[in-house]
Structure formats: structure tokens, C-alpha cells
């Protein structure tokens, strides 16, 4: 479904990605793990068309989408829930959700809104509240709900558990499984290694702009090197 081939990217003179190759198949949960500054968000923003890669290919259903503008990427069904959520703080919850279908699935806005509100009843309770006044957890729900409004084929989640309470993190990972069971392919970018590996089919580990380790999630979970470097065991 999504395949990156030898992707190089950066900002001006600063190179961040030095030839990253990975793929996400239909219906998969694929985790991308790595510490701060490994280049995970840069990777996402190159897929989403915010930045243009300097070299390499981004294939979606076999077509190279590298360098397409963000709205064209959304139109294809690749929707990102970014780090820091990036909800519209001056708009209310309903307006935020409705704008989720600005580019894609606009004709099914009403039905999708109902669906999002059954997944997140809390957003229904706060439907007229200004989004900037929601709690961190609610804002994360809103960001995911907004992405769901576009009926994504591939959902990119950038650090969805960041800043959430342990209980909320648990709920978040359950939700990711649920969305995946509904047929959504998920590219999960996380620092939360154990919980990500528990729900993922496969995973990649990235360090300093390169993939250093990859394989089935269960194998990585048992990998002694990963345990040492990320879990301190």
C-alpha cells in the first residue's frame, strides 16, 4: 500500500533522513519506533506532502506521490494525526470534526460525524465547546476523530500517547486496534516501545535518520538489543 524507497530528506542544509526504506501493507499496523530526533516526524511530514524529499520514492498503490501537495495526499486517503495534535483551537468541536472532511468524504459528513461520536462519546458531550479549552486527552480524541472524518485508507499517528495519562494511553492503544479491525491500515510512530509492539504486526526502529532494525513485532519484542537500548533491561 505505502512503500518508501531510499528516502532522503531534511531542512535546507540539514539532512535528517539518509535513505529510509519501509512499507505498510493493507490492513496492517506498522510501528515506527525511535527516540527524539531520530527523524520520525520529518518522515511523516514528507509522506504528508508538507515537505518535499530530496531523493527517493514514496509509493502509494504503486504511484510515486513524493512532492505532491498536502491536499492531494489527503485526497488519496493518507491522513496524518500529527504530533502536538494541531487541532483548531479557535473552532468548536463540531467545526473541527467537520473540517476533517473538507477535502475527502464530504458527502458522507453526517454519517461519519455520527460514527466518530459513537467512538468518542465525550466529544459528543462537548460538541459546542471551543477546542482550545479541551483537556489534552480530549484534544487527542478530537485530532483522531478529525482524521477519521476523511475516511482514511492509511492513518498516520505521530506519538498519539504523548502527554496522556497511563489510563488514557491504554484506551488510545485499544482504539488503534479497533480502527485497524475496521479495516484501516495504521502507521504508528511512537516512543512507547512495548505497548506499540504489543499491538503492531511489524515494526521498524529508526536511529539518526536510518532504519536500524525491523521485523515482526513479536520478534522485536523479544530482541535482546532492543530490550537493552529502549527498555533498560
Amino acid at each position: 500500500m505505502l512503500e518508501l524507497r531510499e528516502l532522503h530528506a531534511g531542512y535546507g542544509q540539514m539532512k535528517v533522513l539518509h535513505g529510509v526504506s519501509l512499507h505498510v501493507g493493507e490492513g496492517e499496523i506498522v510501528a515506527l519506533l525511535g527516540s527524539n530526533g531520530a527523524g520520525k516526524s520529518t518522515l511523516n511530514n514528507n509522506i504528508s506532502g508538507i515537505f518535499r524529499p530530496t531523493a527517493g520514492e514514496i509509493l502509494f498503490d504503486g504511484a510515486d506521490i513524493a512532492g505532491l501537495p498536502p491536499q492531494a495526499v489527503v485526497e488519496l486517503g493518507i491522513v496524518q494525526v500529527p504530533e502536538g495534535r494541531r487541532i483548531f483551537p479557535n473552532l468548536n468541536v463540531r467545526e473541527n470534526l467537520e473540517l476533517g472532511s473538507y477535502r475527502r468524504a464530504r458527502s458522507r459528513r453526517g454519517a461519519n460525524l455520527d460514527h466518530v461520536l459513537t467512538v468518542f462519546p465525550r466529544l459528543g458531550e462537548r460538541i459546542d465547546q471551543i477546542a482550545g479549552t479541551l483537556s489534552g486527552g480530549e484534544q487527542q480524541m478530537l485530532a483522531i476523530g478529525r482524521a477519521m472524518m476523511a475516511e482514511p485508507r492509511l492513518l498516520i499517528l505521530d506519538e498519539p500517547s504523548l502527554g496522556l495519562s497511563p489510563l488514557m494511553v491504554e484506551e488510545m492503544f485499544e482504539l488503534i486496534c479497533r480502527l485497524n479491525r475496521e479495516g484501516l491500515a495504521i502507521f504508528l510512530v511512537e516512543q512507547n516501545v512495548v505497548q506499540s509492539l504489543e499491538i503492531a504486526d511489524r515494526a521498524y526502529v529508526m536511529e539518526n535518520g536510518l532504519v536500524t532494525l525491523d521485523g515482526p513485532a513479536s520478534a522485536l519484542l523479544a530482541d535482546p538489543e532492543l530490550k537493552k537500548s529502549y527498555l533498560g533491561l
Partner: peptide, 21 residues
């Protein structure tokens, strides 16, 4: 929708790009 998109862009350009505005 265009009016809401204008208000969205006013405060959160990156978020707006990511919903396809």
C-alpha cells in the same frame, strides 16, 4: 466550509494542511 477553513488557517496552518486545506 471556506469560512471555517479561513478561521482554521488563521490559527493553525499545519493542522489545516493536514486536513487537506
Amino acid at each position: 466550509d471556506t469560512g471555517r477553513a479561513i478561521r482554521a488557517v488563521a490559527r493553525e496552518r499545519r493542522g489545516a494542511q493536514l486536513v487537506g486545506i
